[in-house]
Amino acid sequence: MTLIDLATALFLLIGGLFLLVGSIGLFRLPDFFMRLHAPTKASTLGIGSILMASIIFFSFKGDGISIKEFLIILFMFLTAPISAHMLSKAALHVKQKPRQDTLNLDRLNAIRDRTNWASRS
């Protein structure tokens, strides 16, 4: 049980926990816009943490450092907000109903039509 193993195990556990939290959020949150929150962010951090564990493990176990996994981290962190944005745009387009107590629910049409908030109020 070396320090490397300990660090790898720690990052793996953190990553697994965040992936689980993201999936639980996807499972139990009530409406689509709220469901969008959990997977795009908790899962992104989770996969980042697991890839970090992989970097640590292979850098000290294998021959020479391995930072190839850093490319996947970068790719995930670049694309997660973009797919979240496209999904929420599509959800507005097909008129998904948010939860009833959502703040500013009455202005959903203004958001869909991309009008300026100030000019409408």
Partner: peptide, 14 residues
């Protein structure tokens, strides 16, 4: 904003 948990950017006005 999308990466910071708790908020997702939805749309930009035209």
């Amino acid at each position: 904003i999308s990466l910071t948990p708790g908020t997702v950017s939805t749309e930009v006005s035209a």
